[in-house]
């Protein structure tokens, strides 16, 4: 069995092995192996290519951009997605604008350990995909499975543009697979994780698993819920979403991130504008509450959507 975290480590190892242009840069990632051990043993196996950085997110990003401009393929590990905001300027103003301004591409992969876990609190729990997706020139990946964590990270490194790779910390150890995949869907294609005819849940990352659990619960009552794993937030696979809504006539968009202007809002904007006539009921969305992410597990468990709140929302959607 291989975990989601091990898949990320394996993908990095393979990238380092296959491509001499690849190096990894981040805090505590060298001999220590990273805060989550995503680079365990890699510094030893690839001397000089897995480098500890100072606590300087701006300079970490800026230097990765410069190295990419000179032909390297840097992977930057942010210790937590939350800290990437210190390097925000370099990501959104330097990396994201470079190709458009100068015609020089910027092949960097920024790994953001994202999302909540119990007890992590306001500054180690954030989901920032919508923030980065807002900016032109960035690609946003949000793998929900062990297989995708592996194949999408390899693809991220191969892409000639800046990729923000949102890996979910909650899935690091919980999620396991039998083996690593030999082939994968390309970036930009959503996956139908579970087929159904009564309603569509559009979601991504850790919420895919909450949605699947909710679908299981409703299946016991005879409802067939389709669950779409977006896999990539940007580009967003609107075609797969609309095709599903054409079949079910009902849609619920679910995200762990904050509600205002986020991915669920984007999904529903597209469904409403491009597929209004497909809808049999008003579209629904479910996000975390619009507060910082709480520390205590009792509060955290209610702050974010769960299988229970998703199934409640689905019942409402199915009644509409």
């Amino acid at each position: 069995m291989i975990t989601y975290l091990e898949a990320i480590r394996e993908a990095q190892s393979e990238a380092l092995e296959k491509d001499p242009r690849v190096y990894i840069y981040g805090q505590d990632i060298g001999n220590f192996g990273g805060a989550f051990k995503a680079t365990k043993n890699l510094a030893h196996r690839f001397p000089g290519r897995v480098l500890d950085s100072p606590i300087s997110e701006d300079a970490m990003m800026g230097s990765a951009i410069g190295a990419a401009m000179q032909g390297m393929r840097p992977i930057v590990e942010m210790q937590f997605a939350d800290f990437s905001t210190v390097g925000f300027n370099q990501i959104v103003n330097q990396a994201a604008t470079l190709f458009w301004r100068s015609g020089v591409s910027c092949p960097i992969t920024v790994r953001l350990p994202s999302g909540g876990t119990p007890g992590s609190g306001p500054f180690h729990s954030q989901s920032l995909e919508a923030l980065y997706a807002h900016y032109p020139g960035l690609i946003l990946l949000t793998p929900a499975t062990v297989e995708d964590a592996y194949s999408m990270l390899l693809e991220a490194v191969a892409i000639d543009d800046p990729v923000i790779f949102c890996e979910h910390k909650y899935l690091y150890y919980h999620l396991k697979a039998e083996s690593l995949p030999k082939e994968a869907l390309p970036v930009g294609k959503a996956r139908i994780s579970r087929a159904g005819r009564d309603a569509t849940v559009v979601t991504y990352s850790a919420m895919v698993h909450e949605a699947l659990a909710a679908a299981d619960e409703l299946a016991a009552e005879g409802w067939e819920i389709e669950v779409i794993d977006l896999r990539s937030i940007k580009p967003l696979d609107t075609d797969t979403v609309l095709a599903s809504v054409a079949r079910t006539g009902r849609v619920l968009a679910v995200g762990e991130a904050w509600p205002w202007g986020g991915v669920t809002a984007e999904v529903l904007a597209r469904v409403s504008t491009e597929g209004f006539n497909l809808l049999d009921a008003p579209p629904m969305r479910l996000n975390s509450k619009d507060t910082p992410v709480p520390f205590h597990p009792n509060l955290w468990g209610t702050h974010r959507p769960t299988a229970r709140t998703i199934s409640l929302a689905l019942r409402e959607l199915l009644r509409a």
């Binding site: 300087s56 230097s63 410069g66 190295a67 401009m69 032909g71 390297m72 300027n89 370099q90 103003n93």
Partner: peptide, 16 residues
């Protein structure tokens, strides 16, 4: 903001 970009280019030179 350009300083660390230059650092990265020089790091690349070192790698290369």
């Amino acid at each position: 903001a350009m300083g660390s970009v230059v650092n990265g280019m020089l790091l690349a030179h070192r790698f290369q």
